[in-house]
Simulated assay, not measured.
Amino acid sequence: MKRLLAIGMALFLALPAVALAAGETAEEEKFNPASEWTLHPWIEINIGPIDMSINKAVAYLLLGAVVSCVIGIFLMRVKVGSEPTKRQALGETIYEVAQVQIAEQGLPTKAIGRWFPYVASLMVFIWVVNMIGFIPLPLSDEKWKIFGVEVPTLAIFAATSTLSVTLALAFMTWMFTHIEGIRANGLMKYLKSWIPDVPKALYPLIIPLEILGQFMRLISLSVRLYANMLAGHMLILTFIGLIFLVTPWIFPFSVLLSTVFYLFEVVIVVSIQAYIFAALSAIYIGSAIEPEH
């Protein structure tokens, strides 16, 4: 904990550019943390009405995918020796959490082999994307000059704090849920499984509610991750801004509170949200395969 506290303190004391870039303009505009979520296209790519432009959210996702693959190769593809190494122990711990706490709790036994790789990858990928969102990286839209050369400022930004990203992740789980439900049960049997055992007279009321409930899964899964990551980053950026935009006496309180929120997000929220998203994905897919499960 002392090491994490030191890292947090160093982060906010050593990165005035984060707050200055977000809080200063040529006309000294008021600090607005929400401006960090305005995604400016770096490379514009438009395919008809679909905007596929590369922006900082896409950059963070690509970086997260690369880091997730590196972690998987580094921790999982290890040669088992007579005495397990720390790397092997860490890899086995991650594997055990994904299998025992997520896959086996949500998926029927017959489906674990098929869907364990998906839920485990979800857990690792979301954890990585969440985590790198708290590491200052030169992937911001703001620039500052070093010896006359413009370079991006260091900033913190989580791709999972944008609704489009979490909605895309949730949509994959939602689609896989229904595809696997139809594959395992057949279309009509799967659709009938949505309807609880109630008198037929209630069907006109129950059926629309059940259909709405299926779409609400998509919304709740995406909004839960999005809201938690957005709130954490918004609080941290707000307190960083207070360090530079309020009277000097508030400085120690801003540093303390921003560090506390930073450590809370990194130590607790990042892992919990990755776990919950993967666990709910396993539960949804498992309940579609065995509706009575």
Rank of each mutant, 00 (worst) to 15 (best):
27 E>V: 12
27 E>H: 10
43 I>A: 11
34 A>T: 09
40 H>A: 15
43 I>W: 13
31 F>T: 04
39 L>F: 12
38 T>L: 05
42 W>R: 14
34 A>D: 13
37 W>C: 00
48 G>K: 12
35 S>N: 04
46 N>W: 08
24 E>D: 12
25 T>L: 03
24 E>V: 05
31 F>I: 04
25 T>K: 01
37 W>A: 01
47 I>P: 04
27 E>Q: 11
40 H>T: 15
36 E>M: 10
21 A>G: 08
48 G>Y: 05
48 G>A: 09
48 G>L: 11
23 G>N: 01
41 P>W: 03
35 S>M: 07
25 T>I: 02
30 K>N: 14
28 E>I: 05
46 N>E: 15
46 N>S: 14
38 T>A: 05
26 A>H: 04
47 I>Q: 10
29 E>H: 15
37 W>H: 01
50 I>N: 04
34 A>N: 06
44 E>W: 06
26 A>W: 03
24 E>C: 06
33 P>V: 01
35 S>V: 07
39 L>G: 02
42 W>M: 15
21 A>F: 02
43 I>H: 10
39 L>C: 08
31 F>L: 14
24 E>I: 04
36 E>C: 06
38 T>C: 03
32 N>E: 14
40 H>Y: 15
33 P>I: 00
47 I>A: 14
39 L>E: 08
45 I>K: 07
24 E>A: 05
39 L>D: 05
30 K>W: 10
27 E>R: 08
42 W>C: 06
43 I>V: 15
31 F>K: 05
49 P>N: 03
31 F>R: 06
44 E>V: 15
41 P>E: 07
21 A>K: 00
42 W>A: 12
23 G>E: 01
46 N>V: 15
50 I>G: 03
21 A>L: 00
26 A>Y: 04
44 E>K: 14
26 A>C: 03
34 A>I: 11
32 N>S: 12
30 K>Y: 13
23 G>V: 01
47 I>T: 10
40 H>R: 13
27 E>L: 12
49 P>W: 03
44 E>R: 15
24 E>T: 08
21 A>H: 00
48 G>Q: 09
23 G>Q: 02
24 E>Q: 11
42 W>D: 12
44 E>A: 11
43 I>L: 15
32 N>G: 06
32 N>A: 13
36 E>K: 05
34 A>H: 11
39 L>K: 12
34 A>F: 11
28 E>Y: 07
24 E>M: 06
28 E>L: 10
38 T>Q: 11
33 P>Q: 02
23 G>P: 02
38 T>W: 05
21 A>Q: 00
35 S>W: 04
39 L>I: 07
21 A>Y: 00
34 A>W: 10
27 E>G: 05
36 E>F: 05
22 A>S: 08
40 H>S: 13
26 A>Q: 09
31 F>S: 06
23 G>H: 00
26 A>R: 09
30 K>S: 14
45 I>V: 14
36 E>D: 14
47 I>C: 08
33 P>M: 01
49 P>I: 03
45 I>M: 11
28 E>A: 13
45 I>W: 08
29 E>Y: 13
42 W>G: 07
22 A>V: 03
